[in-house]
Design a protein around this nucleic acid. Structure first.
Lengths: 110, 110
DNA sequence: TGACATACCTCGACTTTCGAGGTATCTCCC
DNA sequence: GGGAGATACCTCGAAAGTCGAGGTATGTCA
């Protein structure tokens, strides 16, 4: 029974992953690894790299983010992702959508 | 951009499908076809049969529902699914989980 | 008789997910 | 110098999940 609930929660988390990623990016540009850490804090579960990097590429392809290589004197090169205006717009629209969705779902649970 | 939002909403709906199915069943036993109709009303999108029937079998396997063939004098035979006590318990627990989840998500969006 | 709605279910192609592996740099300690 | 571990990127392919299409059957209505 706990397994079932955990499965469901995992499902829910997965379904909002792109959304949560935009939320994390909204605070400022981040590189992939940092984003993974943020998401672990936000969602309580790590976003696997095999999921995260393709997701970020998708964002780029859809014009939601703009990536830039940040070459540093020290440490490995980092690719930082920043939200574009479109990215912000999609996020804002998604917040509204989410509100409507979670309200309508809440309604049918009572 | 609308496509992206629609994708996400579809994702969200899919992720709560088992949950919504239990919710629909909570009101009383239903057969698969009727459940599909309920879900279309509840979620605003049809649950494809190729998804729904395997889902119901999963419920049965996990002991959340008990199925019974209702042979009728008229009309095709129907398999009705009723929530078991465990099914009710899982649903109640899921409602709590969902509340926690949607709250925590709501928090990070503001 | 044909068309359509109800009602069940499965198959397999398709998509999505993600663990494991690969590459590279830097720091810290022995 | 060298090993361990953290940071940082990415890809591949097996595994899992999804679902449209197809199949079977009954009832109704024109």
């Amino acid at each position: 029974m706990e397994d079932i609930l955990q499965d469901w929660e995992k499902r829910w988390r997965k379904s909002v992953l792109p959304f949560a990623a935009l939320a994390a990016l909204r605070e400022g540009p981040k590189h992939g690894y940092a984003l993974a850490t943020s998401l672990r804090d936000l969602l309580g579960a790590a976003a696997p790299e095999g999921t995260l990097y393709p997701l970020l590429n998708g964002f780029e392809r859809d014009g939601l983010t703009k990536a830039e290589w940040a070459i540093q004197e020290t440490g490995p090169a980092r690719k930082t992702y920043a939200l574009t205006p479109k990215g912000h717009a999609v996020f804002d629209a998604a917040v509204k959508s989410w509100g409507a969705f979670s309200n309508s779902l809440g309604g049918l649970l009572t």
